[in-house]
């Protein structure tokens, strides 16, 4: 609150118009979703489109209920969520640890720089078949996939974050006689928490890509598996249902990271 004096009429009008505008945005958002679903259903019922290849909302709901009754729905969601969470947690942790090693040794950072650039531009999905050969046809390969997709980009962004920490803050610590370990612990890491969380946010999305692609290649369970299986047997209801669940799960996980960010960065 910039001032505590009684609020003027003009300011009240301003606040009201702000609120009205916000409500209009939300109403439009809901309308867009509902309209899209209604139009989709209508088009399918009236045979403007062929629900066999486009599916339809009521079909998706039916599939959802069937999967729920079978009890397999939660197993599939659980498998994919587990792979993704393992992938981005490991990717962020390992990426940060490697970034610390590079910060510690300028020599090593310079030596490894071209390799990191090449690895960063490589589409990590291409490593899929290799990972399967090395780690077997199972969850391990999929987690590795989810991890690799986010690892290099984490290393590069966190390392850049470390390098951008204010020289004067480091100098201040050095003037107290701080060791390199203390500089890491007291300034480099805490100052880079926002960078690490930004990396985490990107990694959540990337790890979904890794996990789903991994499931496309090898799995016997998971949302990626359902999508591939549904596509192969032409059950588009199943494919669409899985995609929608995926949307919701990915959005929820992103929100969790945002909540975590607010908790950790309360000083901002």
């Amino acid at each position: 609150m910039p001032n505590k004096s009684p609020i003027s009429q003009e300011h009240l009008a301003y606040l009201r118009s702000k609120k009205v505008y916000k409500k209009r945005v939300i109403a439009a958002q809901i309308l867009l979703l509902v309209g899209f679903i209604a139009f989709w259903e209508l088009a399918a019922v009236l045979r403007w489109i062929d629900p066999f290849i486009t599916s339809q909302p009521t079909g998706i709901v039916r599939t959802l209920i069937a999967l729920h009754r079978e009890g397999s729905l939660y197993r599939h969601i659980g498998v994919t969520v587990l792979e993704t969470v393992a992938g981005f947690t490991l990717g962020t942790l390992m990426g940060t640890v490697i970034a610390i090693v590079l910060w510690w040794s300028d020599f090593l950072a310079e030596v490894l720089d071209p390799y990191l650039v090449v690895l960063n531009s490589l589409p990590k999905v291409a490593l899929g078949p290799i990972l399967i050969v090395w780690l077997g046809q199972g969850m391990r390969a999929i987690v590795a996939m989810a991890l690799f997709v986010s690892l290099i980009v984490t290393i590069l962004s966190v390392y850049t974050g470390f390098a951008q920490v204010d020289e004067n803050k480091i100098k201040l610590l050095k003037s107290f006689g701080a060791t390199k370990w203390q500089i890491l612990q007291k300034v480099i890491l805490p100052a880079s928490v926002p960078t690490i969380i930004a990396a985490l946010k990107i990694n959540v999305g990337l790890s979904w890509v890794g996990a789903i692609v991994g499931e496309f290649l090898v799995s016997r369970a998971g949302l990626g598996y359902l999508i591939v299986y549904g596509g192969q047997v032409f059950r588009l209801d199943l494919v669409m249902t899985s995609v929608i669940i995926l949307c919701i799960a990915a959005a929820l996980m992103y929100q969790l990271v945002v909540i975590f960010e607010k908790k950790v960065l309360k000083w901002q």
């Binding site: 004067n168 803050k169 201040l172 610590l173 203390q182």
Partner: peptide, 25 residues
């Protein structure tokens, strides 16, 4: 040593900022 601008650490409270040098030592 007092560097250019205050260089307080934004993520630390004032109390923990004040203790920084003592912590290092």
């Amino acid at each position: 040593y007092m560097p250019q601008s205050d260089q307080l650490f934004e993520w630390r409270t004032i109390w923990r900022n004040v203790l920084l040098g003592l912590e290092v030592l």
